[in-house]
Amino acid sequence: MKQETPQKPRVGLFVTCLVDLFRPTVGFAAVKLVEEAGCEVEVPMAQTCCGQPAYNSGDREDAVAIARTTIETFEDYDYVVAPSGSCAGMLRKHYPALFKGDAWEARAAAFSARVHELTSFLVDVMGMERVSAAHVGSVTYHDSCSGLRELGIAAQPRRLLSSVEGLELREMKDADVCCGFGGTFCVKYSDISNKIVEEKAANIAASGAETLLAGDLGCLMNMAGKLQRQGNAVRVRHVAEVLAGMDDGPAIGEGGR
């Protein structure tokens, strides 16, 4: 058993399935940032996915089963932090709804109250005002829908970005409009999704920024995939990579690893 100074909050990192599978750098960046904020980070191995694909497809039974496992795995931490507004929103806002009127209701509510999206945790909970990172160049920030509308995340990432040395934030038009990802929506209704992400790509390009940032890997993969299909050279990264100073490797969808 490790013995840390007792006042350090213990944080369980819910890394999210997409970061686990596609972009581990974001996980390491999140660990670094949460540690810098003065917490001890642990990563339980029993995590898989927050259950949104089932929940949003109407498969409540599987969603509940996945939610139970997640709660059991994470409920002993002081905080649960996820580098995604969408997954954090699921854990924080939708888990209690899943167990409403159920024996697990109070347990789910106690768990959910401790869940935070990464940038919101750093700023709102830990009071972080600046990061010690540098990024020379211009970036634009896309507000992912769940983080923005379910958790009120908009100012926190921008505030931390403003402390990054050399970084210029160029806001795009309609930064708060959906990118067309929508989980399984983007494959079930791929033509409509494509139309929406085309609009988004045009706004990103018009901002003139060299790099696109956001806080959700699903949206980022959608936008990166569209920009790259169009031959657009804008680089795409999760906001945590820049905030943690871990943005020297290939960007999302870039080769040369």
């Binding site: 890394v15 970061v19 686990d20 599978l21 596609f22 972009r23 581990p24 750098t25 996980g27 390491f28 990563v43 191995m45 995590q47 791929s190 033509d191 999704s193 494509n194 992400v197 993969m221 959608n222 990166a224 995939g225 569209k226 790259q228 299909r229 490797g249 290939p250 999302i252 969808g253 690893r257």
Partner: peptide, 15 residues
């Protein structure tokens, strides 16, 4: 992939 490229996984999984 009909409308967009799919980013490849960076490496082994985070976990």
């Amino acid at each position: 992939t009909r409308h967009r490229d799919l980013p490849a996984p960076e490496s082994r999984t985070f976990l």
